[in-house]
């Protein structure tokens, strides 16, 4: 019965705070992270709104058709999609209690994430060489802020994932590391979703 009502009674448990069941606390923390993700939805929402509104204001500078090289962008889209899948496989391995496979899949995910970041940095360097900097036009300011914020999230996720792999190597699969793996895989899927919209709205609609 207690098991059954875990998430339902979690609130009362925490507010009475006399006895915290571990599964309940970890579940509450996961939910807290979910709320953070929703605030991130709002941040990206405002950045998307700014981009959509400003994308026509080129100030005589280059537009998306001349700037974007779709080959690299499509490659990085599939890389991020695959990394979302491998972070799911990491969670699966964790539920099976297989620490080696869990750390392996997290490593693969981090590697794919790093490749994504390298491609993105290369793209930004290419843009700056073309004379398209963040201060060239309103379109480019909005572009660099939106895409750069996503890239920053991925970079933070990378550091976090490497730290988590070290923790897993030290402590193994405990309720705490379990929750952390769940949370980072949520974060990673979320970043993939954001990228899908960046890819669609900025790149695909831009070159069209």
């Amino acid at each position: 019965m207690a098991q059954l009502n875990d998430s339902g009674h979690a609130n009362q448990h925490v507010s009475s705070s006399d006895h915290h069941d571990h599964p309940d606390m970890e579940e509450m923390r996961t939910f807290g992270f979910w709320i953070y993700l929703m605030t991130d939805v709002i941040i990206f929402g405002t950045l998307f709104a700014a981009y959509i509104v400003l994308q026509g204001n080129r100030n005589g500078g280059p537009g998306p058709e001349e700037l974007f090289q779709m080959g690299g962008i499509i490659a990085s889209t599939f890389i991020l999609l695959t990394s979302s899948y491998t972070s799911g496989l990491a969670v699966l391995a964790m539920h099976k209690g297989n620490r080696q496979a869990l750390m392996g899949w997290l490593g693969v995910t981090a590697l794919l994430g790093a490749t994504f970041i390298v491609l993105e940095v290369n793209e930004f360097i290419h843009l700056v060489h073309e004379g398209a900097t963040i201060s060239t036009s309103a379109f480019l300011s909005a572009f660099f802020t939106l895409v750069g914020t996503h890239g920053l999230h991925v970079s933070i996720g990378l550091v976090w994932m490497i730290a988590l792999i070290i923790q897993l190597a030290k402590h193994g699969i405990t309720p705490v590391t379990k929750r952390k793996v769940n949370v980072i895989s949520l974060f990673w899927h979320f970043l993939d979703v954001v990228w899908i919209f960046v890819f669609t709205i900025v790149y695909l609609m831009g070159v069209r």
Binding site: M38, I42, G45, V53
Partner: peptide, 18 residues
């Protein structure tokens, strides 16, 4: 429920700005 709240705010910001 929190996802729906987040999406409502998102849509108001984006569609409202457009």
């Amino acid at each position: 429920v929190t996802l729906i709240l987040g999406l409502i705010i998102l849509l108001v910001i984006v569609i409202g700005s457009m």
